[in-house]
Nucleic acid binder design. Sequence first.
DNA 1: GTGTTTGCAAAGTGTTTGCAATTTA
DNA 2: TAAATTGCAAACACTTTGCAAACAC
Lengths: 139, 139
Amino acid sequence: MEKIRPFSHALDRLRDAGLRPTRQRLALAKLLFDDCDRHITAEQLHSEALAGNIRVSLATVYNTLHQFTSAGLLREIVVDAGRSYFDTNTTCHHHFFDENTGILSDVPEGQLQVTGVPTPPNGSEVESVDVVVRIRAAS
Amino acid sequence: MEKIRPFSHALDRLRDAGLRPTRQRLALAKLLFDDCDRHITAEQLHSEALAGNIRVSLATVYNTLHQFTSAGLLREIVVDAGRSYFDTNTTCHHHFFDENTGILSDVPEGQLQVTGVPTPPNGSEVESVDVVVRIRAAS
DNA sequence: GTGTTTGCAAAGTGTTTGCAATTTA
DNA sequence: TAAATTGCAAACACTTTGCAAACAC
């Protein structure tokens, strides 16, 4: 039952991942992990950082997001050609993607189920099974 | 049991869709629809066209792919941020995406099943449920 | 100090657009 | 001929990269 570890949370995460806790990484980690699960793009995170008076370049935001993803701290979600979303919830779950607003949200656990995932073609192994429920304002 | 209509196939499709059958559209439609189901990017289709001595610009390939998609002749599949795939099979089915090769292929029918698709957040309706089985060469 | 990380600006990728020239009905 | 379509090149959005300066240990 992992609960909120408000302060050293971000620091711990970086340490555990073997990432040097620089000012920028710490600040971004706080934005990403101190609250509830988040779905965010690089641009959004960059804006948030600037809004919070965290001086960080967009390039560093991209680098950091990818480092966090490699370290297993984030999961990258592909829903939109030409934009990458990162999810702070790395456990297996699925997504709603609102085509109108571009907002990504979690499908509540325990309802949607995928069964009968087939054996992939010769010599390949399944890495993940991603389900995206595309929604839009009812007509 | 719809079977092969080799020659006028592409022409019929364009007519049915209300798209003026220009030289370029006809040629692209033939490449897309005359054989089995295909998963293809704009660049790939453009290369194929050039290889087949069909003079067509990349911009027109993009326009055409989108017109075909709007007309319901194609389905756009998002598996890779920064690249769009188009599927000539518009019926409901799911995909393997090979992360190593970038090749998209169909999951054989009748195995994979999605159940319990939840009601989407207020006022939205489900447009589609896309399942991507990400695979890579076994380690 | 030494190796890592950052910021910037430039380059890259895939895609879209504006508009004159061409083509289709 | 009138309206739709095409090609080109420029513009675009997002992302990555190269390298000197700044930083963490």
